[in-house]
Each structure stands twice: as C-alpha cells, then as structure tokens.
C-alpha cells in the first residue's frame, strides 16, 4: 500500500491519500501534479510517504527499485553518446521481458543503437515507457505518458496501459481526459496544490462534475470526453 499523510510544501497543501492499485492524477498546469509524483517516488525527500511501510527517500538498491518508479514527461540525459539500448539496460531490473521484445512491442526497435540525446520528443516518450516496463516496480508513476504522441501511438499506449501484462500498479498523470476516462481508474483531481476530488472514475466524469471542474471547456460525446473548442 502506498500512503501519503498531511504533506505540505511550497506548492502542495495538506495532501493525504492512500492507494492499493491504479490511480489517475488530473489537474491544471502548475497545480502540483509532478511535485506529488516526485514526493511519492522519494526524489523529494519526505517523512510523510510510506510504501509497504518503507520511506522511499530513505531506502536504496533493490529494496527501493522494487517498490516505486517515476517516469518523467521528458527524457533527461547528460551524456551525448549514451544509446537507447544502454539506457534501457540501466532500467532492466525486475521484468521478465527481454529489452528487444519491449522495443518491438512499442515499435521502436529501429532506435536501439541511436543516441538518447537525438530522439524526437515522441520517440523519447516511448523509450521512457519501455524503461518503465523493464524496471517493473510495484508502483509506477507515469508523468504525461502520451503528451507528445501521434493518435496511433496514443492508442497503442492506451492498450498497453489498459492491459495488466506489462506494469503492476500505475499512477498516471495526464491532461488527456479521454484517456483518463477510458482507463477507468480512480481519479485524484488537484487544484492549486489541494486535493479537490478523490474517488471513482465514473462519478468524476458525470456531466455535473465535468461542468464543476472544467466549466465549458470539455464535453461528453458518444462516451468520449472531448475538448470543447
């Protein structure tokens, strides 16, 4: 079980929740979603977070990697010659899939020997997803996993996230409301650093709640959530 109790910092105000399985975190730009992710994964040290009784910022090695992983929205690499394959080797921790299989499943086998520094934003997002699958922690936080992808790829990733074959428990941060809706996981909605809603997916996406949280900017059409332009 993952638990955060009464956490506050420069942006977040009194954050408390716990979860056993999947979760989707929604919220406006600058609401504090990525900060929550960094706190949960131990990148920002805090005593308020426990995962199966352990504090993620205090533990190292296998003990930590088995528990939690955070996948940022863009790939940050300092070395300009590190290849995709080498990068994925570093993530190859608790998964039974060979690196090549994961690359093939995401249709990015052709990137294997490319330098990580010279990937397009979409490609690097797929490489990050591959690293999440290979790392295979108990909880994986994915920060906007589809933000730079073309519609075909979004669909591939949706299917991958929907299946239980690849990743254990997922915490997905996204602005893609339709993705959030179709995945059907519980919703955590944040506004100005505070939790505004934490509950069932169906209830959150009821017409009245949509109006309440997003005003006129979204609408439901044929069971899909669209941005109302």
């Amino acid at each position: 079980m993952l638990e955060i109790k009464n956490y506050s910092n420069f942006i977040l105000k009194d954050i408390s929740f716990s979860l056993e399985s999947n979760l989707i975190i929604l919220g406006n730009n600058g609401a504090g979603k990525t900060t929550i992710a960094k706190v949960l994964s131990g990148i920002i040290a805090s005593d308020c977070v426990t995962i199966d009784g352990l504090k993620p910022s205090d533990i190292h090695g296998d003990e930590k990697t088995k528990l939690i992983n955070y996948i940022p929205s863009y790939l940050e690499i300092f070395d300009e010659y590190l290849t995709v394959f080498e990068f994925l080797e570093l993530s190859n921790l608790h998964s039974d899939f060979p690196i090549d299989t994961v690359l093939e499943n995401l249709n990015i086998g052709y990137l294997k020997n490319n330098s990580c520094k010279h990937l397009s934003s979409g490609e690097s997002q797929l490489v990050l997803l591959a690293s999440a699958i290979l790392h295979n922690a108990k909880f994986t936080i994915l920060d906007e996993p589809t933000s730079n992808l073309d519609p075909k790829r979004v669909k591939t990733i949706f299917n991958l996230l929907k299946s239980t074959e690849y990743l254990n428990n997922k915490i997905i941060i996204t602005h893609n409301l339709n993705l959030a809706y179709q995945l059907g996981y519980d919703i955590l909605f944040i506004e100005n650093g505070k939790i505004k809603y934490h509950g069932k997916n169906e209830e959150f996406f009821s017409t009245s709640n949509l109006q309440n949280f997003f005003e006129d900017s979204v609408k439901k059409v044929d069971n899909n959530i669209l941005v109302n332009l």
């Binding site: 131990g42 930590k64 990697t65 955070y70 070395d79 570093l90």
Partner: peptide, 17 residues
C-alpha cells in the same frame, strides 16, 4: 557514473544513493 550520466533523478530511482 553511468547512472549519473543520465540524470540525478533517474539515478536516484534506480536505487543509488
């Protein structure tokens, strides 16, 4: 060092202090 060649966050998540 190889992990540090990616990013500090990534290295932290892969379990090193």
């Amino acid at each position: 060092i190889k992990l540090l060649l990616t990013s500090y966050d990534f290295a932290t998540l892969k379990g090193i202090d």
